[in-house]
């Protein structure tokens, strides 16, 4: 055993047995087989902390409730919005600074499906 290994072992001993390194998956993913990732492609949800190019953790095992942020397919494309179930079914953008993003009513004949609930946002700060 060389000096360095001996020192490291002694150090480890002093600080007690080390636990496993923290795993971000453990924090962000409760149901791995039901979790998918998507990437935001605009700032329509910036007030919810979702910026363009952020990675969103989407859990399909959770049943969406009113005010959840969801990934939904509307008329054959995916969108991320706040779900409003009552008084009527609507998808709401969250960007007060940009009035281009407007609430969207979901009519009975619209092809609509909730893909999953967004549980975490991964945002790069630089």
């Amino acid at each position: 055993m060389n000096m360095m290994t001996a020192n490291m072992m002694a150090a480890r001993h002093d600080f007690g047995e080390s636990e496993e390194t923290l795993d971000l998956n453990e924090l962000c993913i409760q149901h791995p087989s039901a979790t998918y990732f998507v990437r935001a492609s605009d700032d329509s949800m910036v007030d919810a902390g979702i910026h363009c190019d952020d990675v969103l953790v989407v859990d399909r095992s959770i049943t969406a409730r009113n005010s959840d942020i969801v990934i939904a397919s509307v008329d054959h494309s995916f969108t991320v919005k706040k779900l409003e179930l009552s008084p009527q079914l609507r998808l709401l953008p969250m960007n007060q600074g940009n009035s281009d993003f407007k609430p969207r009513h979901i009519e009975d004949d619209t092809a609509f499906e909730v893909f999953g609930v967004v549980t975490y946002v991964i945002h790069a700060t630089r």
Binding site: F37, V55, T79
Partner: peptide, 13 residues
């Protein structure tokens, strides 16, 4: 590869 490559994950707006 929607579920296996970061560059390929679905983009949502």
């Amino acid at each position: 590869s929607f579920t296996t490559k970061w560059a390929d994950i679905p983009r949502v707006s």
